[in-house]
Amino acid sequence: MENNKNILIINDMPGYGKVALAAMLPILSNMGHSVYNLPTALVSNTLDYGKFTILDTTDYMVKAIEVWKQLGFQFDCITTGFLASAAQVGIIRDFIASQKKEGLLVMTDPIMGDDGKLYNGVTEETVGNMRRLIGVADVIVPNLTEAEFLSGIYQGEEALSQSQAKEVVDRLRGLGPRSVVVTSGVSKESGSHVVWGYDHRSGEYFTIPYRFIRVHFPGTGDMFSAVLVGELLAGSPLRPAVKRAMDVLEKLIFLEQDEIEKNKGIRIEKFLSVLKE
């Protein structure tokens, strides 16, 4: 399948740091796609620095979408990440509905929390709104914490058994998304770090272990999402697409692990050659 799709990334744009739009745009462009963006917020820098300012762009989104509709812009893929307001859920759902066509790929990363807890400022109302958004997605990529809060079970657990993971995945499927990928999980049986998933095309549940590198970079989830989207648009089935995204992320983290200033994220432009390996 030709790698020349129109992709719209709906996510925040950082002024300093390689997360969200700044992380995803270079990857998907390098994979041969035409990449466009609709920022949900302008963020001064990655939140890992502890000090930041955020400009909510909800009003801009409404106006931009109205212009796009008048101009007849169409997309083959819409991927969503950080949302700055509850109103943005309805705006995005309506826009996805207006873009519906055969072959449209919608992927949602429900960014709300990590390490067993929700981020500051994320409430149960936020979780409820995100449930509405994932309901119109073809693929969702929550981490384990987000999957637990969205499903309403095992909240705060940092490791799940195989049967518990399947229960979480099935609860998520019940909310509407067709395929589910739960990232950054830990298997109770093996103690291994794993990704759990369900592919609606094959009807297959899968578990893929990965090597955990003890270093933290913001934006790795965004990079995972970008590679996954690129692979899916190239015609790859979900499981091998997930495995490819995991392998790329492992290489990126390994290559950058000795960088002193980790708060700015992985310098993705420096390592784009990894996508060709």
Rank of each mutant, 00 (worst) to 15 (best):
A41G: 06
A41Q: 02
L42V: 04
L42D: 00
V43K: 00
N45W: 00
T46P: 00
L47W: 01
L47Y: 01
L47F: 07
L47T: 15
D48S: 12
D48Q: 15
D48T: 11
Y49Q: 11
G50Y: 04
K51N: 13
K51Y: 10
I54P: 00
I54G: 04
L55C: 07
L55T: 03
D56I: 01
D56M: 09
D56Q: 00
D59E: 15
V62L: 01
K63E: 12
K63S: 10
E66A: 02
E66S: 12
E66L: 00
V67S: 07
V67M: 04
W68L: 12
W68R: 03
K69L: 05
L71P: 00
G72E: 00
G72T: 04
G72F: 01
F73K: 03
F73H: 04
F73I: 08
F73W: 07
F73T: 03
D76I: 10
D76L: 03
C77H: 01
I78L: 15
I78N: 05
I78F: 01
I78V: 13
T79Q: 07
T80S: 14
T80G: 02
G81Q: 08
G81T: 14
F82N: 08
F82Y: 15
L83Y: 02
L83T: 11
L83S: 05
L83F: 10
A84L: 09
S85C: 03
A86S: 13
A87D: 13
A87S: 10
Q88H: 07
G90S: 14
I91K: 03
I92K: 09
R93G: 06
R93T: 10
R93H: 01
D94T: 14
D94M: 03
F95N: 05
F95H: 02
I96F: 04
A97Y: 06
A97V: 09
S98L: 10
K100R: 15
K101E: 04
K101T: 02
K101Y: 03
E102F: 08
E102L: 10
E102T: 11
G103T: 14
G103M: 12
G103C: 14
G103Y: 13
G103F: 14
L105S: 07
V106C: 11
M107E: 03
T108C: 15
D109P: 01
D109K: 13
D109N: 14
P110Y: 08
P110W: 05
P110N: 11
I111T: 13
G113I: 03
G113M: 02
D114Y: 12
D115T: 11
K117A: 15
K117C: 12
K117Q: 13
L118F: 09
Y119V: 05
Y119R: 12
N120P: 15
N120C: 07
G121V: 06
T123H: 14
T123E: 06
T123K: 06
E124K: 14
E124M: 13
E125C: 02
T126P: 08
T126D: 11
V127F: 08
V127E: 03
V127R: 09
G128S: 15
N129E: 14
M130E: 09
R131D: 05
R131I: 12
R131S: 13
R131A: 12
R132S: 13
R132C: 10
R132E: 15
L133P: 06
L133Q: 06
I134Q: 08
G135P: 11
A137V: 09
D138M: 02
D138I: 07
I140H: 04
I140L: 13
I140S: 04
P142R: 12
P142W: 07
N143V: 06
N143R: 08
L144G: 02
L144S: 02
T145Q: 08
E146Q: 09
